[in-house]
Amino acid sequence: MTKEKNFIFLKKKKKTLSQIQYFSKFALCNTKHFVMDTKIQEELKHIRSMMEKSTRFLSLSGWAGIMAGIYALTGAYFAYRLIYKSKTIIYYDFVDGKFSTGAFILLGIALAIFVLTLATALYTSSRTTKKANKKLWTPAAIKLIYNMAIPLVVGGILSIILILKGTIGLVAPVTLIFYGLSLILAANYTYGNVKILGIFEVIIGLIASYYQGYGLFFWALGFGIFHIIYGIFMYLKYKK
C-alpha cells in the first residue's frame, strides 16, 4: 500500500518537474528571442541614424527660429513706425526711383534682420554641434545651404528688380514665396517638418500678393509669428 502511494507521488513529482523544465525552457527561449530582437532593432536604428546623419543637418535649434521671429517682428515694428509717421510717403519714393533716407533706413532694417537671423542660426547651430562634439560644416550642412541658396538668391534678385522698377507692393509676397520654396527644398537636408513651415510661407505669400498694400502685415505674420510658433514647436520637440 505504502509502496503504491509512494509510486503515485513520485509520478506526480516527475510530472511537475517536467512541467517546470518545459516552462523554464520556454522562458529561456523567450529571453533569447528578446535579446536577439533588441539587437536587431539596435542594428536597424544604427542604419537609420547613419543614413540621417550623413544626409541631414540636424543641429538647427528651435531658439534660432524663435529669435528670427523676434527680430522680424521688431523690424516690422520699426518699419511700421517709419512708414506711417514719416512726413513723406516712402512708398512713392520707391515708385519714383528716389532713394530717400527713409527708403534707405527701410532697406537697412531689412538687411539687419537678415544678417542677425543668419548669425543667430550659425551661432546656435555651432553651439549644438560643439556640445555633441560634432563638426558644423558637414557635407550635409553644405548641401542644405546650397539648396536653400538657390531659391533665396533668385527671390532676392527678383525683389531688387521689383524695387528698382517701383513695384514695391510685390516685394513682401515675393520674399515670402521664395523663402517658403527654399524651406520646402531644405526639408530634404534637415528636419523634414520644415516643409510644413515652407508650405505655410508660400500660401501666405500668395495671399499677400492678392491683398497688396498689406505687405508689412503679412511679412510680420510670415517671418515673425510663423517662425516663433515653429521655433517653440521645435524647441519642445527636440529640447534644444
Binding site: H46, I47, M50, P139
Partner: peptide, 13 residues
C-alpha cells in the same frame, strides 16, 4: 557595426 555604418552612409550618398 562599423561596416554596417559605412554601407548605410554609402547607400544614401
Amino acid at each position: 557595426k562599423i561596416r554596417l555604418g559605412i554601407m548605410s552612409v554609402l547607400m544614401v550618398n
